[in-house]
Design a protein around this nucleic acid. Sequence first.
DNA 1: ATTTAGCTCATACTAAAGTACCAAAATTTT
DNA 2: AAAATTTTGGTACTTTAGTATGAGCTAAAT
Lengths: 141, 141
Amino acid sequence: MKKTVVVFSLVIIAVFILLRISKYSYLSGITSIEMTIAVIAIVFFFAGIYLHKKSLHKKQPNTPKTPKVNYQKIKELHLSKREYEVLCEMAKGLSNREIADVLFVSESTIKTHISNIFSKLDAKRRTQAIQISKELQILPF
Amino acid sequence: MKKTVVVFSLVIIAVFILLRISKYSYLSGITSIEMTIAVIAIVFFFAGIYLHKKSLHKKQPNTPKTPKVNYQKIKELHLSKREYEVLCEMAKGLSNREIADVLFVSESTIKTHISNIFSKLDAKRRTQAIQISKELQILPF
DNA sequence: ATTTAGCTCATACTAAAGTACCAAAATTTT
DNA sequence: AAAATTTTGGTACTTTAGTATGAGCTAAAT
């Protein structure tokens, strides 16, 4: 924020200086107007680049990692809403008992869901299912 | 590359048009020179922003994902070389039997390694160990 | 030379995961 | 309303994972 103010101040000062140069050169001759305009154009061109660069340096740390979930893939795999929930909890490292507790269902239900997930993801183990999900960009982390 | 050429062409055309306007306004009055300069400044300012934005959109896909391994953390956790190998294979989704095969040791050895890994990572399950390793940025993927 | 740390492997056991098959509600779609 | 899908849950079983303990071997550090 402070740097932006400084840059804007410098730009404004540059404008005044260039306006003075333009008036001065206007008195000395007509042909120097094009030169003045060119100088102003170049200065503001790089000012635009500089300011945009600065604004990006501030936005990048705000969004360090934004993993996007490929919802299309989830549909293609015919993963139901509940199955996807179970998959996410599984990927967090929870056991069947823990998943059952956070989703308020029995452990048997979780086992059924996970078996279905495995067949749909073509996985044999939960660790493999997690790896496959990662590659398919299905998980939100 | 093609878009950059187009943009530069448009900018050059804009320069000629503005130079003509400046000459025209120069004939009509002295005060309009400041206006002309202001317009040129604004145009080139945004041109700079636009071009910089475009150049960034080309640089971003060059560096899609570069997961860096935090070797310092591995040392801090006192994970041995072999234990780290086992951890990586585990994170790939392999079973104990499969890890034993790729590392040419017995399944008992893998079980021992994994038990040690769990105590060092403070994990109770392999899925949890994978999640913790991910957060600690220990895994190379 | 002795200790230390790391790698190996085994046995015996418990716990958890996973499979197979079934079936009843609940929900959504047609 | 009927059909299809999803969600739920159970039993019985097999397999894999994980724990505990002990022990031999090697290489590096003290």
